[in-house]
Nucleic acid binder design. Structure first.
Lengths: 340, 340
DNA sequence: TTGTATGCGTTATCAC
DNA sequence: GTGATAACGCATACAA
């Protein structure tokens, strides 16, 4: 069976390919009857335009690319979910890649996406990324780029994120108001901005409340095996500080859950003996025993907004309207449960 | 700045476009020196072939499409993770779509993928899918199709799945061996094959062990709000049967966790008073209190195998080798924890 | 060893 | 109103 192309339809109808093309696109200079006939035949033969040819002509792929550190992750899967839904609305395709927290992979994936001619790119940087040439390359290629969550401050593009410092500040202030005085922090990797900001928020909350900042209460989690990191550091914490610690603010929920696991198995009472505060409001936090207090960081909202901004910029570009980069802060709030 | 195309390079070098093309592809009939020069210039100008043009010529996009019911899901995100990794290895792109358990969307997405000219498609059917014309369309288009997990038995294509009936059978037999006699089943939607099979496995286990099958012990969960379904049905179960029930086998872990939540809040002791057995071995099952016994259904393995089969079939197709459809069963096993 | 010609399928321009 | 033509960028059969 021969492929159904414009030319094929044209032959069948005794018309030219260009007329058929215009008819299908409802050009005003085509006879109504002709349009009818063309459309009917196209429908009956199940004609679908060849998208490679279209992309080649129109220089747009109706496809966007997304690079995230990892897929198996409540926050990121929610972000992707939202992006997929927004793309669906606009009949766009979404190509997804995982950097797996690896800079080299991330770089390679940017190249792949660029070579594929995607119309725009959304990224949350890997922890290993300290150099941003690949992002600059996207921008230099004139492709709209939006960063979310793990961003690079110095890159000139739109960004969607939360106020990590404030969110952390609020969480720690809450612990203090509840009477906690020796508050530990299980922080994230040293590199990413948001783990730095959460740490700074923690520190500022202490200082603003006249509690001495004790660096020995800060433990670094390398983020690759979150859950175990929480467990192991909880163990260390108790070994190092014994009873001289009464709360932990963790950089994310998984680490908090790991810590909780250690406390539960070792009969250290949460929140009585030690309070716990997580970050992100992962689904699981509501089903742990006790349930976990945390900071709501709405992945869906972030993904939705990110996609909206991207599609806006793609549209601007197509219409030749200059793009103004935005920095959008998504609200967070504390979700108080039983762990503090 | 003019785009760097073959023609552009050719002009710069005083060669023809075809020579440049061949040089870059290391054709044997091109002078070694010429190749050198061409490659150097291409590299220095950062030449990347236009993939639209390539796809138009070669009739392949180096892209595969994946349609899953939902993204925010431990099992599916693991499957996707594996698919992304396998695709990465082969320099393929992956377009992901969510049917959101909706047949019409699923159908539309198939059309979108076909119109985009993907080289192959992987799907796990939505619960709402009872008609398979859209799948047949894929096959009729000559595009390799692999179904995983939620499959359609009657469709002629390769499939990757687990033996749901056997897995369920084993789980329920385990409960029986532990002395449980009144075992309820919280089953999934009535439509999908795997929820049917898990139910049949449950039933057969009872019969084979001379336990009467009592239909009033079977509750249907509609699968959209899994967690609450578990909670609500646990409540109903206790209301309906009081003490005359001593175990539940659930169609998935989320439902089990919902039920567990009900029991914990109502001081109904698990596993003493009632035992629980889930399905899938989601990450969370290890951190509930008590931890949940479940069936290991390895999403990564399933995704990996599915991708392998797909790429194999794509390769066959390109080489003109006839494709033999495979039905691959991924092993499961019981993960025994504290809930029974 | 290199170049010419052609076509992939669509679309925009311009002539009829 | 309609159709011929060219162009998007690449890749190949064939000629030189």
């Amino acid at each position: 069976m021969p492929k159904v192309t414009l030319k094929f339809l044209a032959n069948k109808l005794g018309l030219s390919a260009s007329t058929v093309s215009k008819a299908l696109k409802d050009y005003s200079d085509i006879n109504a009857e002709t349009k009818q006939k063309v459309k009917e035949l196209a429908a009956s033969l199940n004609y679908t335009p060849n998208s490679f040819a279209q992309s080649l002509r129109n220089k747009q792929s109706k496809t966007i690319g997304v690079i995230i550190p990892t897929m198996v992750h409540y926050f990121f899967s929610n972000v992707i979910n939202a992006i997929l839904i927004e793309a669906e609305k606009r009949n766009y395709m979404v190509v997804i890649m995982q950097s797996n927290e690896n800079y080299d992979l991330e770089k390679k994936q940017v190249d792949l996406l660029l070579s594929k001619g995607v119309d725009g790119i959304i990224t949350s940087l890997s922890n290993g990324t300290r150099d941003f040439k690949h992002l600059q390359k996207i921008i230099n290629n004139g492709i709209p780029l939006i960063l979310f969550d793990k961003i690079a401050k110095t890159i000139g593009c739109s960004k969607v994120l939360i106020d990590d410092r404030k969110a952390a500040y609020d969480a720690v202030c809450f612990l203090i108001k509840k009477g906690r005085k020796r508050i530990a922090h299980f922080r994230g990797d040293l590199n990413p901005q948001n783990s730095i900001d959460r740490f700074l928020g923690y520190k500022k909350a202490l200082l603003d409340n006249n509690i001495e900042y004790d660096p020995t209460l800060v433990y670094v989690c390398n983020n690759n095996s979150d859950f175990n990191d929480g467990y192991i550091n909880a163990e260390k914490l108790i070994k190092d500080h014994g009873k001289n610690v009464d709360a932990i603010f963790t950089v994310n929920d998984l680490i908090a859950i790991g810590a909780l696991n250690y406390f539960n198995t070792n009969k250290i009472k949460v929140p009585k003996r030690i309070a716990l505060f997580g970050f992100s409001n992962w689904f699981m936090t509501q089903i742990t025993t006790p349930s976990l207090s945390t900071v709501e960081q709405n992945g869906y909202q972030i993904g939705e907004k990110t996609a909206e901004v991207l599609f806006h910029e793609i549209e601007c570009k197509q219409k030749g309207i200059p793009i103004e980069h935005q920095k959008i802060i998504i609200n967070t709030h504390l979700v108080i449960r039983d762990s503090c």
